[in-house]
Each structure stands twice: as structure tokens, then as C-alpha cells.
Design a protein around this nucleic acid. Sequence first.
DNA 1: ACGATGCTTCGGTCGTGACCGAAGCATTTG
DNA 2: CAAATGCTTCGGTCACGACCGAAGCATCGT
Lengths: 256, 256
Amino acid sequence: MTNFVSANRIAEIGAVIGDVTRATILMTLMDGRAFSAGELAAESGVTPQTASGHLAKLTEAGLVTVHQQGRHRYFRLSSGDVAELIEGVSALIAAGPLRYRPTGPKDRAMRLARTCYDHLAGHLAVRVAENMEVRGFISLSDGTAVLSKEGRRYVCDFGVDLENPAYCRRDLCRACLDWSERRFHLGGRLGSGLLDRFVALGWLRRMPGSRALLITRAGETGFAREFAFRVGDEQGDDMGASLNTGAGRDAFEDAS
Amino acid sequence: MTNFVSANRIAEIGAVIGDVTRATILMTLMDGRAFSAGELAAESGVTPQTASGHLAKLTEAGLVTVHQQGRHRYFRLSSGDVAELIEGVSALIAAGPLRYRPTGPKDRAMRLARTCYDHLAGHLAVRVAENMEVRGFISLSDGTAVLSKEGRRYVCDFGVDLENPAYCRRDLCRACLDWSERRFHLGGRLGSGLLDRFVALGWLRRMPGSRALLITRAGETGFAREFAFRVGDEQGDDMGASLNTGAGRDAFEDAS
DNA sequence: ACGATGCTTCGGTCGTGACCGAAGCATTTG
DNA sequence: CAAATGCTTCGGTCACGACCGAAGCATCGT
């Protein structure tokens, strides 16, 4: 009725997400890369016409933006906000009222390390952020992370180019809540640059058809040396999961 | 395909939100109170049968929980996560790609102070949290806010009962991103208790049919004295809005 | 210029789901 | 025990939207 953002608009966004094909497209785009219409059609198992219609709706709703290149049209999520929204829905499902919570090997991989839009997420991301905070490189306060002078130098030495024009106009360093961990990790220009660097160093490898990231042998030693992170040292993993369960079921014993 | 939380589940949640009547119901429940099925039917302008069907779907999806009392059935959001999700959708719309962004008087009231599930949100909430952090009562770090010893004493003296069993099993103090401000404010047991206390003191009054909160005369002096907050002192309000615009439109000039 | 490729628009089919009237169960009240 | 109230289930109508085949438009390659 007299609501700020009208229920109509909320429902519009919901309806756009609420189709399996469109949701599949969004999930595919969740790793931040751009895909052509044809690729997205194949990936979601529909004909090009159908995908085209869906992509038009996604674009119309502002969830996705187009980038024409020759006779191809590349689609990507239009902002990190969209990715965060989808992760928010995932959080509801993962923390959700029981019902099947996935725990297979692929799911463990996702919890361990995955892309979130253009940066790193999951257990590894949280640990890296923690380590950088302990060393005084960043400080997470009041929602926006701040990169210290020493942090800037460290990151530069590490090989991240913070001045890359492709990242311009982005917040340098953005704290981003991780649904599988409920802790903060790094987004923004810094998070994006770090992910690129990790991939360039061969520490992480993208898994085809998934947002999960593989930690290579080089990565194992690299993360251990630079960020004191050892694979298998995942006491935080299960803890995070059970913590979710607790937080999802809030208290509803009223004094009624 | 090989995604963690399957696109099917994402779409399920989306479809549940993606109906105007259900979205209206959710918006009504956004202030954290429970409403009977009949009330929700009237509020959303459908017959009781129809509303009943919608409420069954919302419950089935885990967004809403029921609380039977005599021949009435009261519905409420099943967790703060759900409220945060809806606020996330609002954030997309408010920061969105242009299209009509509301700026009327009611909207200003919403930006200034509103309920978010069971706690306070908006400009006022952010300012209160900031003030409490400056005074060393809380520290927002790494996503979870921590209440200091002095903070606990202060809050108790202020009249908030943190031991109230109705709040048990909730995180004491939860940092919660505000979509209209993009800063953190207080949720959890503390945020909930503070809101109750503000209302009890007559500083805030719920507006019928809206999530907006009215700051009373008593509130004006009270917030000024206790939290150094003056109404009209809203340089952060417009700033927050324009900041949203900037953050929503991220950089997509690729080196392509 | 010609055909091939990538994507979109058009037209028509089909399934899903929102809605209400009527009837059915509970619970409370007289 | 009846009548009233609050909500749900059932049955049937209707509209919206997802899907594909066919055709239409661009762009690229030769």
C-alpha cells in the first residue's frame, strides 16, 4: 500500500528470477564473466529464440547488461548488487528450514573456494581477508574495508594492479558477506584484482561449468606461504555450516 | 548444471516472491509483527481463500512461519534473513538503472527511519550505530558487531533488557547493511531491544500501514541528547542516495 | 555480391497458476 | 447443542507466459 518500494516492483524482480531457465542463466553469469546469447542458450538447454526472450527480460529488469561485439551480444550481470542478491537467495536456501542441504564433493569445493561475480568467495576468501587484516593491510570497519598504506604496498608487490583502468570507478575494497561462511571477504577493485592475480599465478583454476575454483599444488604452497592458509585446515568450514543452521532458525517463542 | 545451490531452488524462491499478492503480504510482514490470515487477505485485497493459498506457498517455501492461536493463525517472516533478502531486492530497485526512483514525503520518512523486521533501519539507525561505535560501546568488525563491557552497561541503564527470553537464541548484536544508506546498523537482540525501548519511551511511533517510523518531539530531544542526532541534520541522506546511484552503475568499460 | 552465422521478432500451442464461489473443518460463543 | 467466526480445501474459469518453428535482420567471411 503505502510502501516505499512498491510490492509491484518487488514482485517484478521476483518473477524475473522465478523462472528456471532465467535462474540458470543468472547462475551461469554469477562468476562475473560475460557470455554470448548462444552460449547461454546452450548452457540452459533452450533454443536461441527462447534464450533471447529471457535475456531481453533480464535486461529490461536491469539485472543484466548487454555488450555488443560484432554479430555477438555478450551478457553479464549488471552490477555486484545483483550477484549479492542471488547469493542472498542462496543463503536462505543453504541456511534454510531443513530440506535437503547439499554436502557432496562438489558442494565442498564450492564452500572452499568459488567466484562471486568478479572476486573470490568461500572459506579461502574469508581466510585470506582475515590474514590480511591481522597483518594490518586492511581494516574491516563499518561495512567498508579500508586498505592501509602498507597494505597497498604489499598488494602492489604481490602483483595486483590497482590502477588498471578496467577496474576504475569501482570501490577499491568492499567487504562482502559470504553466505557459506557468514564472515566478510574482499570484493571491489582489490578483491577482483586478487582473484585475477591468483589465477594468473596458477594458484587457482576455474572449473568448467561451475563457479567452484580448484586450488592447485602451486596454490597450496602459495596460500600457505603468503596467507598462512593450509588446505584441510577447515575447522571453520563445518563450523560455518552449523552456525548457519542456528542463525536461520531464529527465536520465535513469544510471551504470548 | 553443476551449481551448488541449484538454479531450480533459486527459481522456486524467486517465483514465490514474484507474485504481486505474495509480495504485498511479505511487505506487510516486513515490520516483523505477526498478522492473521484474514488481516493479510484484507491488506492485500484478495479473498480469504486466495490469501490462504498464498500463505501456504510462503510457508512451504520457508519464508513465513505460522503460529496458531485459537481459531486464528498468525503469520510472520520466519527469520531476519528473509527480511534482509527483501531489503536486498529493494536495494536493487532503489539503486537501480534509473527508472522512477521515489522521492515523495513518505519516501523521505522511510529513508529517515523505518522498521526492518524487528529492529530499526534508515538514516537514524545508521547514526545511532555510528554514535555508539564512536563512544566505544560497540565495535563493528569482521561483520559481527561486538558489544563492549561499557556498552552493555550503557544499554542496560538505557532500559534495554538483553536477557529477555523472547530474544534468546538470537545473536546479541548483528551488523546489518542498510540499503538506503549502504552503511551498517544494528540488528540482532540489541537492535531489537533498542527499537522496543525507543517505542516504549515514545521517541518513535509506528505509522499505520507503513514501515516508516515517526520521530516524536520527545524523540527529537531524546535522540539529540543521547545520540547526538538532530533531525534535519541529514547531509548523509542525500549523500547516501547519490552514493547508491554511483555504486549501482559499476564500471563496465572493458579493455576489449 | 553471396552464403553462413548469430540473434531477434512473429505466430501459435500448451501448461501452469491466480482467482473466486461453494462447501468443509476447526474453534469459540450463546 | 446450535450458530457464528476464521480459515482451508475443492472445482472450475481464465489469463499470462514459456516454448518452439518459421521468418526476418544484422554482421562476418570469401
